[in-house]
Design a protein around this nucleic acid. Structure first.
Length: 209
DNA sequence: TGCCAGGCCCTCTTTAGGGCCTT
């Protein structure tokens, strides 16, 4: 895939997992993702996957994904192979991206595949843009910004959908606040990397360019 | 119910500690 093919696209993804750390043996149990092209969702991916062991009752309650649902799901390797094809080299976004990035890399490593694109974190950007939000959990930001949703949280596709809406809203707010014409993925990624105090000055310098 | 790990970021910091966020 060429740079020009991915320049105006981004994939927003979310994993549901058996726990917090692939280094501790945790595995993905669901992946959801939406492809945004020119500000519109144009494709979706959602799939449960069987991690090969029973998930805890906490995860069943937290996600609503039960062991019975996972019993008939295809194995992680099969799903992740399909998902690797879906993401290609698109730039990726996730809420608290370091978490999803760890699981993506671990699951792709299991099938000897890798991801060669870039990640940006909607949570870090939201902390810069909305410092007065009650907190920066995904559900809280959805409520704080009045983002349309179906009331489903902690399921992969539902969380991806609202994270995508948050992402697009943050692009609009960057436009309005700093008069940046169509902030690029790389600019948003730069914002997510910069310390909170450095962001206003950085964006104002960008606006003058 | 919320812990686990890991990265980011703030501050009563920098020779460190602890909160936030993800499942």
């Amino acid at each position: 895939m060429t740079t020009s093919q991915t320049a105006n696209t981004v994939i927003v993804l979310d994993f549901e997992t058996t726990g917090l750390s692939p280094n501790q043996g945790d595995r993905a149990i669901e992946i959801g993702a939406v492809l945004i092209e020119q500000g519109e969702v144009v494709d979706r991916f959602q799939q449960l996957m069987n991690p090969g062991f029973r998930v805890s009752s906490f995860i069943e309650r937290y996600t609503g994904i039960t062991n019975n649902m996972l019993r008939t799901a295809p194995p992680c390797d099969e799903v992740m192979d399909q998902f690797a094809d879906f993401i290609g080299d698109h730039n990726l976004v996730a809420h608290n991206a370091s978490f999803d990035q760890r699981f993506l890399e671990a699951e792709l490593d299991n099938i000897q595949r890798n991801y060669g694109g870039e990640f940006a974190c909607s949570m870090l950007i939201a902390r810069r843009l909305y410092p007065h939000a009650p907190n920066h959990k995904l559900g809280s930001l959805v409520e704080y910004k009045n983002i349309d949703n179906d009331g489903v949280f902690h399921r992969a596709l539902a969380d991806s959908e609202v994270t995508a809406k948050l992402w697009l809203l943050m692009l609009e707010d960057m436009d309005k606040r700093y008069q940046l014409s169509s902030p690029s993925f790389s600019l948003m990624q730069e914002v997510s990397r910069k310390a909170k105090a450095a962001v206003p000055g950085f964006l104002q310098r960008q606006a003058k360019c």
